[in-house]
Computed example of a mutant assay.
Amino acid sequence: MHKEAEDDYAHLSSLLQEFTSIPNIDKAWLFSSPGLHLQGMFAVSQSDLLTNTRRTSIMSCNILKERDSSVNFLWAPFPIEMSGVSVIVPSPSGSKLLVIRNPENEAACCFQIWSSSRMEKEFHIPQSLHGSVYNDGWFEGVSWNMNETCVAYVAEGPSPAKLTFNGLWGYKIDGCADKDSGYWKCQGDWEEDWGETYAGKRQPALFVIDINSGEVREVKGIDKSLSIGQVVWAPFTEGSEQYLVFVGWSSKPRKLGIKYCSNRPCALYAVRLRALHHDSKSNEPVLQSTEEFHMLNLTQTISSAFFPRFR
């Protein structure tokens, strides 16, 4: 190789490292605090060329408005890397932080609730309830309610039961552990996925977790032909019923890609959570499974609607 070509490669390699070392601000949250200033929290990512992944970290700052109307940012000294974390969502007041770690293989999904100084609670959600929480930026949706007692989110539906066989006696009725030797499990019924980056992922569904008890419920009453995403809690007043607003994509006639087909027809839906009642002792909303859910199409007159927001 000529000396000039080697110099060009070295120069381009150096440029690539410099560009990839520049972090991206993926998400940002602002919280009101006592006094006249705001607190900011930022999810920052940076490329890791060796592992072909992105490092995720969080940064915080105080935002001060000076007398001359200028704005001053007082940043924390260093960011904090969130290794192995799939989703980070602070509560509306900024007093709690939800950290979700998606499982590897068939392990349970981990939900952690952090306060300012410690981890308060940790819940492990088995595959029989749901799979990984979506964090793709399209189906992704994780939302705290205003009371900070429940979190709505979008995750893969529960893993279906699979028939178990062995090499000698055929079908095993009572099943077996995944690591039992001499047994094998069927792949199960074939289910069409959305393709592209969603190959092998199960259909997104809507769930609500009570962060006090760890109880998880799938939101019922939603058409199974809809893939759910971008869920948010609608504003409500004390004593009124709560609503979840989300986007629904129909799988009819077929799922032919979605991440790179943003013009695919979709609609905004609302579901009334009549399953939330107030505990007389704590006066906080508690999940109750005896009530029904009701879904409403909010955008029947238009063919595409997504990213619902309330101000």
Rank of each mutant, 00 (worst) to 15 (best):
K220E: 10
N212E: 11
V245L: 06
T301H: 11
V142S: 06
I209E: 02
Q17D: 15
G131A: 06
F139I: 10
A205H: 06
S91T: 05
G40K: 06
N297V: 12
V99Y: 00
V151H: 08
Q187M: 08
F42S: 06
Q187S: 12
R309F: 09
V247S: 12
K179W: 11
L296G: 01
Y243W: 01
S304W: 12
I58H: 11
P265D: 12
V71R: 03
Y134H: 01
T20H: 03
R67K: 14
D210F: 01
L49Y: 07
F207S: 05
N102G: 07
A205F: 04
L168V: 15
A270P: 01
K162L: 15
A177M: 15
F165E: 02
G221C: 05
S91P: 00
V232H: 10
E106I: 07
D8G: 05
Q17G: 14
S132I: 08
S83Y: 02
S69D: 13
N135K: 07
A108F: 00
F111Q: 04
H130C: 14
C150F: 10
I25R: 12
I228P: 02
G141F: 05
P34T: 03
S70V: 02
D136N: 06
Q187C: 13
S86H: 03
H124F: 15
A275E: 15
E66Q: 15
S225E: 11
L64V: 09
A5K: 13
K259T: 12
K3F: 06
K65A: 07
E106Y: 10
I211Y: 00
P253I: 11
D210L: 01
S83I: 14
S93M: 04
S132D: 03
W29D: 05
W75R: 05
Y183Q: 05
Q187A: 05
W249M: 05
M146H: 15
I25H: 04
K121D: 00
C61P: 00
Q203V: 02
D193F: 01
H130I: 10
E81G: 06
K224F: 03
D279Y: 06
L74F: 13
I22L: 12
K220Y: 04
G175V: 05
Q39G: 11
W144L: 00
D174H: 15
G221N: 02
A205I: 07
K201V: 08
G40P: 09
L36Y: 11
P253L: 10
N52G: 09
N145H: 00
L64W: 12
E291S: 14
I22S: 13
Q17E: 15
F73M: 14
V89L: 03
